[in-house]
Write a protein that binds this DNA or RNA. Structure first.
Lengths: 112, 112
DNA sequence: ATTCTATATCGCAAATATACGATAAAGAAA
DNA sequence: TTTCTTTATCGTATATTTGCGATATAGAAT
């Protein structure tokens, strides 16, 4: 990269990009899907359903935590993760603000 | 990575991840914002408003094209890009299917 | 107290992404 | 035709991400 230009962009642009980045790997989508499916906290079962090593899954969970997409608590030998729906809600709004504006998708026209 | 495990995930997981990946850099969000702001095709003006070299912007545009997030035509010396709203609409639905399910955000509860 | 189980972290290798300058390509302007 | 303008692509350097095995940590089970 030579230089990381990330900080030269607007705060809200960085915010959206960071959220998107957290969702930019199929393993992390699969993790969210798994948590969402149970609609409750789950712990180690994630590793079982993913084609990845335990350490790799742990790393992906860490990414999701860092981006605030999930919350988590560790009680000794068991850890527990939940989806942070507030962030999804917030992102949905920001997203709408940027891209929908007043118009609906149907009204949008392309010229190419 | 040693091995890319991407293909071992579900098709729809990969699809969401790929879309998110396209939006995972502030420069690409800024590009979309710029196109959206004008609500019409724009061409070279993107380079002017971004803190990046022309070749880098062109590369980011290529990424967005690859992910089908924008459409583009090249007429000789001028190129023209539009946001592909259909893909945003589709993503919004898939996203909702996975993460909202029947419940609204407000009804969702966390346990951690 | 020792062993088992679940999870996080470290260290490393390989793959990808980011960024730029130089250059190519191709129509527009002179 | 020659030069200018706009955009894409190539080559390359550096940064970041992905992935794993090994190991650390800490409570649970024996």
């Amino acid at each position: 990269m030579a230089q990381n230009k990330k900080q030269e962009f607007d705060k809200d642009e960085i915010e959206i990009a960071d959220f998107a980045k957290a969702l930019s790997h199929p393993a992390r989508i699969a993790i969210l899907k798994e948590i969402s499916k149970r609609d409750t906290c789950i712990c180690g079962e994630i590793v079982e359903v993913l084609p990845l090593a335990q350490s790799t899954v742990s790393q992906h969970l860490k990414e999701l935590l860092k981006a605030n997409v999930i919350t988590g608590t560790v009680d000794g030998t068991k850890s527990c993760y939940c989806i942070n729906w507030k962030v999804f809600e917030k992102f949905e709004k920001t997203f709408a603000k940027f891209f929908h504006k007043a118009k609906s998708f149907e009204e949008k026209r392309n010229c190419c």
